[in-house]
Amino acid sequence: MNISLHYEERGEGFPIILLHGNGGSCEYFSHQIEYFSKDYKVIALDTRGHGKSDRGIAPFTIRQFAEDLYFFMNVHKIKKAHILGFSDGGNIALCFALKYSYMVEKLIINGADLVPSGVKCRIQIPIKIGYKVAKMFSSRNTMAMLKAEMLKLMIDEPYISSDELKKLSMPVLVMAGTKDLIKSKHTRLIADSIPGAQLIFIKGNHFIAQKNCKEFNYAVEEFLRK
């Protein structure tokens, strides 16, 4: 890996790694970092090209982000961890767990999708329009170029087969909001495709970790304690 990923670390104990969503940063998990640091070593990452992390020159893809996580864990001598991924972070976590299952103790997936069509149409349409606009100005404006790159990620990725998920053998918790931008049937498909996966819908929208943190944290805590 030719870049350094920014991260926030707090607490001691078995590590739990938090992966934020598209366009976000580790700050999204402010309520989780404080809460879980009582019992775990919490490590919240900024994905490549997000927050305070470098962009680098490698492809801007979900699978590249999963490789970045692999190298990060090796550099920091983390042999195994709980992984909690939100939105695109959930997609990264799935790709990582499929390739490096021996490094994942328990997996928590919140608001993830296997394919772009897992996102509700009323959300996808503005994203596609925003991408076209940003792309028009990307050759003349650095911010527009970065915006286009991030929006393109949501249009083109991920592409994970539900059959692939049958390979996962670690305990998995699949979560989404009751009014999530991910289709509920798609969230159910993810859970149904993973052997023994637990499925929980929490009252709220896509951002339940922030807006309904009490219920979100309780559900994650109960899952990790089992």
Score class of each variant (00 low, 15 high):
residue 2 N to E: 15
residue 4 S to P: 01
residue 7 Y to I: 08
residue 8 E to N: 05
residue 10 R to L: 11
residue 11 G to Y: 08
residue 11 G to F: 08
residue 12 E to V: 07
residue 13 G to V: 07
residue 16 I to S: 01
residue 17 I to W: 00
residue 18 L to A: 04
residue 18 L to Y: 11
residue 18 L to H: 08
residue 18 L to E: 07
residue 19 L to Q: 09
residue 21 G to C: 12
residue 22 N to C: 15
residue 23 G to S: 10
residue 28 Y to H: 14
residue 35 Y to F: 15
residue 35 Y to E: 10
residue 35 Y to G: 00
residue 36 F to C: 02
residue 37 S to P: 05
residue 37 S to E: 08
residue 38 K to I: 09
residue 42 V to Q: 02
residue 44 A to I: 13
residue 46 D to C: 11
residue 47 T to A: 12
residue 47 T to M: 10
residue 51 G to A: 09
residue 51 G to H: 14
residue 52 K to I: 02
residue 54 D to R: 05
residue 57 I to Y: 15
residue 57 I to P: 03
residue 59 P to Y: 13
residue 60 F to H: 15
residue 61 T to D: 08
residue 61 T to M: 05
residue 62 I to R: 03
residue 63 R to D: 15
residue 63 R to P: 01
residue 65 F to N: 02
residue 67 E to T: 12
residue 69 L to Q: 06
residue 69 L to E: 08
residue 71 F to V: 14
residue 71 F to M: 03
residue 73 M to Q: 05
residue 76 H to A: 04
residue 78 I to T: 13
residue 79 K to C: 00
residue 81 A to E: 03
residue 82 H to L: 01
residue 84 L to Y: 15
residue 85 G to M: 04
residue 86 F to E: 09
residue 87 S to E: 13
residue 88 D to M: 13
residue 89 G to K: 02
residue 91 N to K: 03
residue 92 I to G: 01
residue 92 I to Q: 07
residue 93 A to C: 00
residue 97 A to M: 04
residue 97 A to G: 01
residue 99 K to C: 04
residue 101 S to G: 05
residue 101 S to A: 12
residue 103 M to I: 03
residue 103 M to K: 15
residue 103 M to P: 02
residue 105 E to F: 01
residue 108 I to S: 00
residue 110 N to G: 00
residue 112 A to V: 13
residue 113 D to H: 13
residue 113 D to Q: 06
residue 114 L to K: 03
residue 115 V to D: 05
residue 115 V to N: 04
residue 115 V to H: 11
residue 116 P to C: 03
residue 116 P to I: 06
residue 116 P to A: 02
residue 117 S to G: 00
residue 118 G to H: 08
residue 119 V to C: 05
residue 119 V to L: 06
residue 121 C to K: 09
residue 122 R to F: 13
residue 124 Q to F: 06
residue 125 I to L: 12
residue 131 Y to C: 00
residue 132 K to T: 08
residue 132 K to M: 07
residue 135 K to W: 03
residue 136 M to L: 10
residue 138 S to K: 01
residue 138 S to P: 01
residue 142 T to F: 01
residue 144 A to N: 01
residue 144 A to M: 13
residue 146 L to A: 07
residue 147 K to D: 02
residue 148 A to E: 03
residue 149 E to N: 02
residue 150 M to H: 09
residue 158 P to C: 05
residue 161 S to F: 06
residue 163 D to L: 07
residue 163 D to T: 11
residue 166 K to Q: 11
residue 169 S to I: 09
residue 169 S to A: 07
residue 169 S to N: 14
residue 170 M to Y: 12
residue 170 M to H: 06
residue 171 P to T: 11
residue 173 L to H: 07
residue 173 L to S: 06
residue 173 L to K: 04
residue 173 L to P: 05
residue 175 M to W: 13
residue 175 M to D: 10
residue 181 L to Q: 15
residue 186 H to S: 10
residue 188 R to G: 00
residue 193 S to P: 08
residue 193 S to Y: 12
residue 194 I to W: 11
residue 194 I to T: 07
residue 195 P to C: 02
residue 197 A to Y: 11
residue 197 A to F: 09
residue 201 F to M: 09
residue 203 K to Y: 11
residue 203 K to V: 11
residue 206 H to T: 15
residue 207 F to I: 14
residue 208 I to Y: 14
residue 208 I to G: 10
residue 209 A to V: 12
residue 211 K to I: 13
residue 213 C to D: 15
residue 213 C to N: 14
residue 213 C to V: 05
residue 218 Y to P: 00
residue 218 Y to R: 13
residue 219 A to S: 15
residue 221 E to H: 13
residue 222 E to K: 13
residue 223 F to R: 04
residue 224 L to H: 06
